[in-house]
Amino acid sequence: MTTDLSLPAMISMYALMGVPLAILVYLQLGMVRDMLIGMVRMTLQLILVGLYLKYIFQLNHPLVSLLWVAVMLGVANFSILRKAGLKPGPFFWRSLIGIAGSTLLVSGWFILIAIRPDPIYDARYMVPIVGMILGNCLRSNVLSLERFYSGIRKNENEFMTYLMLGATLHEATRPYLRDAVKAAINPAIATMATMGIVSLPGMMTGQILGGTMPIIAIKYQIGIMICIFTAMVIAALVNILLSLSVAFDDHQRLKQTIFISEQ
């Protein structure tokens, strides 16, 4: 069993936050308020999630676990669109299909084919695995959607030139799609290439701290990394492709009204 962190231990951890706080004040970055809000939100959210997960794991009912997964997908989807600078309204359902499809496909693969827990819907596997894959997809999808639409917006003349030269919408958007997918997966490739040397991954560390044999923890880590990477690539591609029909008008011009900054 992992050693519990006592209240004084947790206080000592919060005290460590005094160091970045002092640096932010010294640099006059104006981010102290954001940092404090972020820390309070993190604490409250994790306490609530901790309580909720305890309930979910005890109950271990497939519908309750799936409901929690659905909430995670909805929040992640909304967050992706807002952070990518896109109005959620026009894209919500299309983007949800991309993120949910890719996340559920690879988590299903990992849980149902590779792990095969007993019972198969065991919440201790389903919730954390979907959460890890989704969290990583969230970051990569923000990058890919933002890069794709800002790329076309900044290079509108180039994009129109492709159309004028006879390109279809898919052909004209392909250079920006390539850039966007590259931007989304580059950090993951770098992380995979240095894993174990530069960084010790969270899942593996957590399992080892929880008493799992390192060799088993490593297998899970390899599995989850492959799942994360696969889901990232699928979600980045599918999200962009599904968004095309609402982001461009019937003359293949990029709609300026899809961006949050354009009211």
């Binding site: 290079n155 180039e158 030139t161 492709y162 004028m164 030269l165 006879g166 390109a167 052909e171 250079p175």
Partner: peptide
């Protein structure tokens, strides 16, 4: 054909720019 004041060639080199439209289905 639309030719602007600062045309976008859209590729790395001139040969690719001239051949670019021939990669499109049309």
């Amino acid at each position: 054909a639309f030719i602007g004041q600062e045309p976008m060639l859209g590729t790395e080199n001139v040969r690719d720019a001239l051949l670019l439209p021939f990669h499109f289905k049309a």
